[in-house]
């Protein structure tokens, strides 16, 4: 019991979100969203298209500015940071995995250059070491070492997505934002990616916020789940509890709408 007490008592939230609101004119992007994310936790955000989950993610990641509310990362007020600080955070402590790998990769740059970019961005100036790290990360995301000088355009969709993950994780971020990371991939490729992500989360102690509409993905990946509808969080809790014993009408509808395989 002592270990658990240690986990629950001494750890501070890595990310603390309070009353986050974003409007597009009269339309609500997301409204009054609050949650804590602890180190090593994976939070899933589900909801249909237009539910505000992507708006929320981009506000959290600093791609859009929230109108109201507070975001504290590791005790620091993210919204009060200068852009320099925030962008520095964005390429060191934070990572963002786009749904479409083309949005997160430099398609004209080799796989090794893609992985090495974040290292060079934070000051790495030794070619041999940069290449060594890139090689190591390609291995961790199961891309053959001899593909290091190939451009991502020569890769399959699943490989591109794994390359994007390597590119993001090479600077050992603590917080990873993922926007539908398995969307647009074949089911078999999805499974491989999910397994990879689970392993990385466990081994690196990553905190992850993952937006998806795929309930199977969150069941396997997320510890906790937030259900959004019309910009509001209608329900949140332990992932399997929310999916198996949904309390809110919308969640019940969402869960019962999934086709059984």
């Amino acid at each position: 019991m002592t270990l658990m007490e240690k986990m629950t008592a001494t750890t501070q939230p890595l990310l603390k979100v309070d009353g986050l609101t974003k409007r597009y004119g009269p339309r609500i992007g997301c409204l009054d969203v609050s949650f804590d994310l602890y180190p090593g936790e994976v939070l899933g955000i589900v909801g249909e298209s237009g539910s505000g989950k992507s708006t929320l993610l981009s506000c959290l990641a600093g791609h859009q500015r929230a109108d109201l509310g507070r975001i504290a990362y590791d005790g620091r007020d993210v919204l009060a940071m200068s852009e320099t600080e925030r962008r520095r955070l964005g390429r060191t402590d934070w990572a963002y995995v786009h749904q479409n790998p083309r949005d997160g990769l430099r398609m004209g740059v080799s796989a090794g250059g893609n992985v090495g970019e974040r290292l060079m961005a934070v000051g790495a100036r030794h070619y041999g070491e940069i290449r060594g790290k890139a090689q190591d990360w390609l291995g961790r995301v199961e891309i053959a070492g001899d593909r290091i000088d190939d451009r991502p355009s020569a890769f399959s969709g699943g490989m591109q997505q794994r390359l994007q993950i390597a590119r993001n994780l090479v600077t050992s971020p603590r917080l990873v934002f993922m926007d539908e990371p398995t969307g647009g991939l074949d089911v078999s490729v999805q499974a491989r990616l999910l397994d990879l992500l689970r392993g990385l989360v466990r081994d690196l102690g990553l905190s992850v916020i993952i937006v998806t509409h795929d309930l199977a993905v969150v069941r396997l990946l997320a510890h906790r789940l937030m259900v959004m509808k019309s910009g509001r969080v209608v329900e949140q809790g332990l992932t399997d509890q929310v999916l198996d014993d949904p309390q809110h009408a919308y969640t019940q509808l969402l869960v019962s709408s999934v086709l059984q395989v």
Binding site: V109, G113, I130
Partner: peptide, 12 residues
């Protein structure tokens, strides 16, 4: 950092 990516690509 991007500027060094270009040089990295050269060496690679």
């Amino acid at each position: 950092g991007l500027m060094h990516v270009k040089l990295y690509e050269d060496i690679a």
